[in-house]
Design a protein around this nucleic acid. Structure first.
Length: 207
DNA sequence: CGTAGGATCCGCT
DNA sequence: GCGGATCCTACGG
């Protein structure tokens, strides 16, 4: 069911379009312990300009350089002092834009994924959530900038089944306070691995 | 099933 | 210093 590697030009598009292209596609990561493969079921688009929620909103920095580079590379960042999240970079070289990978269904290497995600009680929880996804696949800071369209790369992106528009839903991005009215989160409607929606803003209620 | 609180540290103001 | 594109555990219904 896994298709071919994506071509870079297929990914060099606006993140809002790229997000929908990525639904149903397959991400695979190979390490010393083996390979884990997963089908993407939930993603979010982020842009540089006009997107207050984007890491690139206030210009180029050391952290976000990969997001400004050519499409088809992986942007990995560190959050909340302990987690990593992964994005697929879109748009042309010099333009900032990427798609956050929020949730996936593990299709191969579930045993390895389980060994990395001991807290997961059910298989559907293995990659439900952006930091869980990177953990299950073994993606870390060493993969920041990895070329997803290079067959030699440890992390690769493959085409998957095409998801008809009727099965795609959209809504506000999760955990984002800015641009709440921008429905740039996309997910496959009938997937049990889609993460729960949480509103952005103050994570902790005032007290 | 839902909410609450804590962990933990890098990047940016 | 502050707060975050989060997750886990505990506890109440």
């Amino acid at each position: 069911m896994t298709g071919r590697l994506f071509k870079r030009e297929e990914l060099a598009i606006d993140p809002v379009d790229l997000a929908q292209v990525l639904l149903g596609s397959v991400l695979e990561c190979t390490g010393s312990e083996g390979t884990v493969r997963a089908r993407l079921v939930e993603v979010e688009a982020y842009r540089g300009e006009d997107d207050p929620a984007s890491h690139c909103y206030r210009g180029r920095t050391a952290r976000n350089t990969v997001m400004w580079g050519p499409a088809g590379h992986l942007y990995v960042y560190f959050v909340y002092g302990m987690h990593f999240c992964a994005n697929v970079v879109g748009r042309e070289d010099g333009e900032a834009g990427a798609v956050l990978l929020r949730a996936a269904e593990i299709t191969d290497g579930a045993h390895l994924a389980r060994s990395r995600r001991k807290a997961a009680r059910k298989d559907v929880e293995l990659a439900r959530g952006p930091a869980r996804l990177t953990s299950a696949l073994g993606i870390g800071p060493q993969h920041n900038g990895a070329d997803l369209v290079d067959p030699q790369s440890p992390v690769r992106l493959l085409t998957g089944e095409e998801i008809p528009a009727e099965r795609v839903r959209s809504g506000p991005r999760v955990g984002v306070a800015a641009a709440m009215d921008t429905p740039w989160r996309f997910w496959i409607d009938d997937s049990p691995a889609v993460s729960l929606y949480r509103r952005g803003g103050r994570a902790r209620p005032a007290k």
